[in-house]
Design a protein around this nucleic acid. Sequence first.
DNA 1: ACAACCGACTTTTTT
DNA 2: AGTCGGTTGT
Length: 752
Amino acid sequence: MMLFNEADTNKEPSYLELLNPAQRTAVETTEGPVLIIAGAGSGKTRVLAYRVAHLIYQGVPPRSILALTFTNKAATEMKERISAIVGDDKSSMVWAGTFHSIFARLLRQVASSLGYTSSFSIYDTEDSTSLLRKILVDFQIDPKTSSPKSFLHGISKAKNELKSWQDFADDTSPQMKVFVSVYKEYEQRLRAYNAMDFDDILINMIRFLQLSPQTLEFMQQRFQYILIDEYQDTNRSQYISTKLMAEAHKNICVVGDDAQSIYAWRGADIRNILEFQKDYPDALAVRLEQNYRSTKTILNAANAVIAHNTHQLKKELFTENPEGPAITLMETQVDRVEAERICQRILIDTSTRGDLQLKDIAILYRTNAQSQIIEDTLRKNNLKYTIIGGMSFYKRKEIKDILAYLKLLINPSDQESLSRVCDLTTGIGKTSLMKVEVYAKMNRIDLIEAFSQVHEIDGITKKAADAMMQLATLVEDNKFRLDHEPHADVAISYIEQSNYLKLYSNTDDEDMQDRLRNIETFVENLRIYLENEENINQEDATKPTIQEYLHQMALISDIDTLDLNADRISVMTLHSAKGLEFDTVFLAGLEDGLFPLTRETSTKKDKEEERRLFYVGITRAKKKLYISYAKQRMRYGYSTFSAPSPFLAEIPEELFEQRHSLTNSRTVNSQVKKPTTMTSTSYFQNEMPEENYSQLEEHSMYTVGMMVRHRSFGEGKIIRISGGGESAQVEVTFRSVGQKKLMLKFAKLEII
DNA sequence: ACAACCGACTTTTTT
DNA sequence: AGTCGGTTGT
């Protein structure tokens, strides 16, 4: 299976033949700094993987290669590709992963030098917010004037700029004083709890590198070759940390596309990529401009759109792919109909194009809020889909609760998790908890330890004391079991003993039963993970333990779990779609204000980022692009009216499907056709007036067994009618082409 | 300590 | 609109 044989070094490795000249240069220039400007669909992932494979081919030890990606999914994909060339045993030793997951793993090995233990917790946004809320309460800061979230935002921004609270200490404005005190307290508590937030993982890596010349040299030696994907989306601490690591050998290869920079809002600094050649004057710059993904039509649209940005590196993607079908623009009155129309098109396309499967289709939108209505409509039409983002499985309350219980077992200092568990435990209230907290602080012990000594503390009700004692015992006993029993057994019985499940059982509340099922799914996944021997095989991966599981869990994102092989429509935000590609893409909600999303503070720069996001969306499509918008949309619970997105006018008109090509597309309901109000622009797809929709319920003129004639398929017999209303479908066996599934509403069936 | 009610906030995007 | 956290009354 391997594409090269080590012994046979005279011959050029065959995988190089699969590359174009630019790609090949990018792969073969293994020494020194390399900047790869890779346009959308230019084979970037392939180049990265081949480059790593080539390094290994040339004898570089896999474990000294560090490949940093944006998502875990991208890392897994890269590993798979590398593995296909050099084999699994070698590829699994490459350090490939996200900044956060790789750094966290490294930090666990050196945690003690930074004042943590190796089992430190990682706090997500919710954990951090909840911690800040408690701090605000303690500091008696009115949460109305400044919310925990706004503090977290400020702190995260400061951390991204590598500024500690001390850096603001000189600022004496009252507002800043408050900020500094909260920032300081937040940092101290994280430390006391043996916990890091997302930003800390990056910052602590820098701190470690700068701890001493020895630690820096150690890391530089460890990673001789560094590759960074999506470099346009790296932030300051990611930039600094990798720059430090590469300082000695300068074997740093970054790949990115300034036109796809869409994360400035969370601190990504586009200068990192724009000024790479300033940092490394002898860097080789390679441009990958041939697109292998999309049709000419789609690429032309993308190029035209991005040309409206002033602050963009000049780049013109080209493709040798065919022209492809025109872009379809769909205008509807309201959002629900927009969703309905998308579903109809999917039903039509999948039935008329034999090669098109649901997994080839994506519906993309700007905000997660838009997903609800799309989801509803897909479900109504019996279309299978996978949704990414929104409320991800692991962010659900019941799952986070279970995770908090488990974290307690691993990190006894994790007071945030403990406090979450206390909220769930009947008997433990605010008053008694406060008293024990004081006691723990005075005696310098962990809160959970104080629980086991609760009888020594004055003024605690018996009920509270019992509950605390019980919790302390539960955690203590199971912690002990971790060293002696299979973790799967411990996890399951621990969760059972916790009584947490009681909250959800004995009720016919549907929501509660749902949550219980989620927990069951979660526990089952956990069990499978813990019992899976395969996880042990990887060189540097440890045994599958509860620790390991929690550590991985903290940094997993929704997109990582997306299974593109399942035959389902992918539904997600444009941000989540970065790096993915689909045959057919629907871009929904192209309305002014929604996309580009604008708020009072929006600047020209923001609009350019929105435009890049649009560019990303367009270039996800391989063959067919649909763009839609609704004039009227529910937002915040009430109806808002919007004009079409100004972005639409940036796509050359001739790339859109012309109206006349569709005017004749319906015959079944032609008798109900009324004059429609069309927009002045000529390229909108002809739309059915919405007041006619109800009349579509009437499809009873067709029955099973009836002979019909189709304009292109000829004569056939109806063998099935399914669905109702909008989405009624017929299955017809045609003499010429055999069985076809058709949308009744659009199929031109003549009864014979 | 807990249940029931109330009001604020969400909806930009996420490691 | 729906969720979540906080408040109030028992």
